[in-house]
Deep mutational scan, measured.
Amino acid sequence: KRYRAVYDYSAADEDEVSFQDGDTIVNVQQIDDGWMYGTVERTGDTGMLPANYVEAI
């Protein structure tokens, strides 16, 4: 699945990823209600991200 960031996010922990509004997130997997795991296409960084900061595309 592919998602697009709708807000900027700065990683708060080493297992999270930072991204900017408009970034595409690929290979996304749902972890639980609030978190997903995926790769930021622009940077190649992979990690956890907050589900409410992205939307499906």
Rank of each mutant, 00 (worst) to 15 (best):
residue 1 K to T: 12
residue 1 K to C: 14
residue 2 R to Q: 09
residue 3 Y to C: 06
residue 3 Y to M: 09
residue 4 R to S: 06
residue 4 R to D: 04
residue 4 R to G: 04
residue 4 R to H: 07
residue 4 R to W: 06
residue 4 R to M: 10
residue 4 R to I: 11
residue 4 R to T: 08
residue 5 A to C: 08
residue 5 A to F: 00
residue 5 A to H: 01
residue 5 A to V: 05
residue 5 A to E: 04
residue 5 A to Y: 00
residue 5 A to P: 04
residue 6 V to E: 04
residue 6 V to Y: 07
residue 6 V to R: 12
residue 6 V to F: 08
residue 6 V to S: 06
residue 7 Y to I: 12
residue 7 Y to Q: 15
residue 7 Y to L: 14
residue 7 Y to T: 12
residue 8 D to T: 11
residue 8 D to G: 11
residue 8 D to C: 11
residue 8 D to Q: 09
residue 9 Y to S: 02
residue 9 Y to H: 06
residue 9 Y to E: 02
residue 10 S to M: 13
residue 10 S to W: 13
residue 10 S to I: 14
residue 10 S to R: 10
residue 10 S to A: 12
residue 11 A to E: 03
residue 11 A to V: 02
residue 11 A to S: 07
residue 11 A to D: 02
residue 12 A to E: 11
residue 12 A to C: 14
residue 12 A to M: 14
residue 12 A to S: 11
residue 14 E to C: 13
residue 14 E to F: 11
residue 14 E to Q: 12
residue 14 E to M: 11
residue 15 D to W: 14
residue 15 D to I: 11
residue 15 D to C: 15
residue 15 D to T: 15
residue 15 D to P: 06
residue 16 E to M: 08
residue 16 E to N: 05
residue 16 E to G: 10
residue 16 E to W: 06
residue 17 V to Y: 00
residue 17 V to L: 07
residue 17 V to N: 00
residue 17 V to H: 00
residue 17 V to M: 03
residue 18 S to K: 02
residue 18 S to F: 03
residue 18 S to G: 06
residue 18 S to P: 03
residue 18 S to L: 01
residue 18 S to I: 01
residue 18 S to C: 04
residue 18 S to Q: 03
residue 18 S to H: 03
residue 19 F to N: 00
residue 19 F to M: 06
residue 19 F to I: 06
residue 19 F to E: 00
residue 20 Q to Y: 12
residue 20 Q to T: 10
residue 20 Q to V: 14
residue 20 Q to E: 09
residue 21 D to R: 15
residue 21 D to H: 15
residue 21 D to F: 15
residue 21 D to S: 15
residue 21 D to Y: 15
residue 22 G to R: 04
residue 22 G to Y: 05
residue 23 D to R: 03
residue 23 D to P: 01
residue 24 T to G: 04
residue 24 T to H: 11
residue 24 T to F: 14
residue 25 I to Q: 00
residue 25 I to L: 10
residue 25 I to S: 02
residue 25 I to N: 00
residue 26 V to D: 05
residue 27 N to R: 09
residue 27 N to A: 10
residue 28 V to D: 01
residue 28 V to C: 12
residue 29 Q to A: 10
residue 29 Q to G: 07
residue 30 Q to D: 09
residue 30 Q to G: 08
residue 30 Q to E: 12
residue 30 Q to H: 13
residue 30 Q to A: 12
residue 31 I to M: 12
residue 31 I to C: 14
residue 32 D to W: 10
residue 32 D to S: 15
residue 32 D to K: 14
residue 32 D to P: 06
residue 32 D to L: 11
residue 32 D to E: 10
residue 32 D to C: 14
residue 32 D to Y: 11
residue 32 D to M: 13
residue 32 D to Q: 11
residue 33 D to T: 09
residue 33 D to I: 09
residue 33 D to Q: 10
residue 34 G to C: 15
residue 34 G to F: 15
residue 34 G to A: 13
residue 35 W to P: 04
residue 35 W to R: 07
residue 35 W to A: 01
residue 35 W to D: 03
residue 35 W to E: 01
residue 36 M to R: 03
residue 36 M to D: 03
residue 36 M to S: 04
residue 36 M to G: 03
residue 37 Y to L: 12
residue 37 Y to Q: 08
residue 37 Y to P: 03
residue 38 G to R: 00
residue 38 G to E: 03
residue 38 G to I: 03
residue 38 G to P: 03
residue 38 G to D: 03
residue 39 T to P: 02
residue 39 T to H: 04
residue 39 T to M: 08
residue 39 T to N: 03
residue 40 V to W: 00
residue 40 V to A: 02
residue 40 V to M: 01
residue 40 V to P: 01
residue 41 E to K: 06
residue 41 E to P: 01
residue 41 E to M: 09
residue 42 R to L: 04
residue 43 T to Q: 01
residue 43 T to V: 02
residue 44 G to Q: 07
residue 44 G to I: 02
residue 44 G to N: 07
residue 44 G to M: 06
residue 44 G to A: 05
residue 45 D to R: 12
residue 45 D to A: 13
residue 45 D to I: 11
residue 45 D to Q: 14
residue 45 D to Y: 07
residue 46 T to A: 09
residue 46 T to F: 07
residue 47 G to F: 00
residue 47 G to Y: 00
residue 47 G to C: 02
residue 47 G to D: 00
residue 48 M to W: 15
residue 48 M to G: 04
residue 48 M to Q: 06
residue 48 M to I: 10
residue 49 L to A: 04
residue 49 L to M: 10
residue 49 L to V: 10
residue 49 L to P: 02
residue 50 P to Q: 06
residue 50 P to R: 10
residue 50 P to W: 04
residue 51 A to C: 10
residue 51 A to I: 11
residue 51 A to T: 09
residue 51 A to F: 08
residue 51 A to W: 05
residue 52 N to E: 12
residue 52 N to C: 14
residue 53 Y to G: 08
residue 53 Y to E: 03
residue 53 Y to Q: 06
residue 54 V to Y: 02
residue 54 V to F: 07
residue 54 V to M: 07
residue 54 V to N: 01
residue 54 V to W: 01
residue 54 V to D: 01
residue 54 V to L: 12
residue 55 E to W: 06
residue 55 E to S: 09
residue 55 E to I: 14
residue 55 E to Q: 11
residue 55 E to N: 07
residue 56 A to Q: 12
residue 56 A to E: 15
residue 56 A to G: 08
residue 57 I to Q: 07
residue 57 I to F: 09
residue 57 I to Y: 09
